Computed example of a mutant assay.
Amino acid sequence: MMPAGSQQERLLTLLRVGSIFAPEPLEATDILIADGRIAALGRDIDIPAGWPLQVVEARHLIAVPAFIDQHVHVTGGGGEGGCGTRCPEITAYEIASMGIGTVVGVLGTDSISRSPADLLAKVRGLKAEGMSAYMYTGAYRVPPPTLTGDLQRDLAWIPEIIGLGEIAISDHRSSQPRQDEIERIVSDTRIGAMLAGKRGICHFHLGDGKRGLEPLRRLLSETEIPADQVIPTHVNRHTALLEEAADYALAFNASVDVTAFEDAGDGLSSFDAVSRLLERGVLSERITMSSDCNGSLPEFDTQGAYLGMKVARNTTLIADWQRIVREGVLPLELALGLISTSVARVLGLHDKKGRLAIGFDADVALLNSELQPQQTFVAGNCIFDVSSG
Rank of each mutant, 00 (worst) to 15 (best):
N381Q: 15
I47H: 02
F300T: 11
S19L: 05
Q229L: 00
D228H: 12
A379W: 12
V386M: 06
F261M: 10
S132P: 10
A4R: 09
V104T: 02
T137M: 13
T29M: 11
Q70E: 10
F360E: 03
E166T: 00
G295Q: 04
A156W: 13
R211P: 01
T91L: 13
M309S: 12
D272R: 00
L366N: 04
G308I: 14
C293G: 04
G380L: 05
H172Q: 10
K210C: 02
A273W: 06
V274F: 00
N368P: 10
N381W: 04
P52Y: 11
V386Y: 06
P145C: 11
L338C: 03
G84I: 14
I191F: 15
R173F: 00
T85C: 05
E160T: 07
D154W: 12
V17E: 01
I191G: 02
F21W: 08
P177F: 06
L332R: 11
W51Q: 09
H205Y: 05
F261G: 00
N314H: 15
V55Y: 00
R237H: 02
G138M: 02
P65D: 03
G130N: 07
E129K: 06
P144A: 09
E94C: 04
G5K: 03
V186W: 07
A312Y: 14
E224N: 15
L242V: 14
G138I: 09
I31A: 01
I287G: 10
G163M: 14
Q152I: 05
L147V: 14
M135R: 09
E89D: 05
G5W: 02
G389P: 01
A227G: 14
E89N: 14
T102A: 01
R124Q: 15
V106G: 00
L278D: 04
V74T: 12
A4V: 08
S97E: 06
D257N: 07
G265R: 12
V258E: 05
S132V: 11
C87E: 01
C382T: 03
P331K: 09
V55W: 05
V274G: 08
S387G: 14
L15E: 00
A139T: 07
I167R: 05
G328V: 10
G101K: 05
S342V: 07
M194T: 09
A254K: 07
A245S: 04
L317F: 12
D385Q: 04
D320Q: 02
E9I: 08
G125I: 10
W51L: 12
